[in-house]
Design a protein around this nucleic acid. Sequence first.
DNA 1: CCTACCGATCGGTAGG
DNA 2: CCTACCGATCGGTAGG
Lengths: 215, 215
Amino acid sequence: MSETPTRSAKTAKSGAQASGKKDGQRRGEILAVARRLFAERGFEATSIREIGEGAGILSGSLYYHFDTKEEMLHEIIKDHVFSLLKGYEKCAASAADPRTALEELIRFGITRLIDQREVHAIVVNERGYILRQPSFAYLDETWQEVFRTWYGVLREGVRAGVVREDLNLHLVLRMIMDSINATIVWYRPGGRYDVEEVVTTQIGILLNGLTTRKS
Amino acid sequence: MSETPTRSAKTAKSGAQASGKKDGQRRGEILAVARRLFAERGFEATSIREIGEGAGILSGSLYYHFDTKEEMLHEIIKDHVFSLLKGYEKCAASAADPRTALEELIRFGITRLIDQREVHAIVVNERGYILRQPSFAYLDETWQEVFRTWYGVLREGVRAGVVREDLNLHLVLRMIMDSINATIVWYRPGGRYDVEEVVTTQIGILLNGLTTRKS
DNA sequence: CCTACCGATCGGTAGG
DNA sequence: CCTACCGATCGGTAGG
């Protein structure tokens, strides 16, 4: 049960009473359609008519639930990066040592993103569009916080002598994040690879390149 | 007149006489504008009016040089992946041993893609659109050939005992390609990192995770 | 949530 | 390469 709609949204519109719950439910159903389409075809390439069709209503009726098409996009992704950050922070704080922390960060990142691959595909693929919209600034701030969390672990690793110190940590971090993020582009659940295999490969390559050699 | 096979792609400069050279030159100028816009904003999000504006002519006039907007896209990327494959093949064939081959493949990939980052950004970012268009099937075939070239080197590495044999080579390959491809998304020439630094980091992490440990 | 419609913009074309 | 224009489609709205 992944990708369940977060209805932390302003669920009840102004005067909703008995219909409030149902409206919120319908809202979630529409968002699920939009999320799938945005992930498959892209935000700009998806028309509100396609969303309406998928939800079984006319495009104009979408505006009873949402003010704009962009509001749907906000609803879909706003909590995602934030909860991802929380998960990363937990990994970083609870691990016994830097090496374990890195392993858990990578493992958590991959499994989480695969579990929520539609949302994440949108965040990655619509990166350009999102960066251009000032209304999505909060996303960028959260990403920076994610980077800081990882970076802290890497530095701790260097201090503890577990992480190589001959590499630029910023570049290393970019690479790791890219590796994790790129996975969702081609990964298909139920396909030829299972998640555990992907996790093992990524940890295997990334960490054994990162950790110092204890010959 | 929509089915006339005029000026199909590679024969752009064929029939013309005195104006032939100039037309070809103008064509190139327009393509340079289109390439930049496609890379910055995306193919579908770029209008022919924007291209015209950038080239200093009206949108309708673009159709003197090209049949469709999609033809511009073909012109921009068609040779790119193919020449990339040729470069990779050369690296794979000329290297003294598998480890050197891998280093040269990574180095060539990164430097080449950074050098042609606009075209490559288009290929990566428009992946979804391109996969949906049957007319771009040749691209996919070339990519598969690229994969085969790399894969051959990896297998040779395993046979020579240089590459770990406990990992799924297909997954490893995905990861390497993702690492290289992702670079162009954030890399800015003249920015805080130079190419050599990026190459060093990528080889450093990827290879020391890939090669067997010679304690 | 539907009917009926809007202004804007899209890729592309005819004829010069 | 321009003028003048096309049918289609876009996101969104008024009023019920």
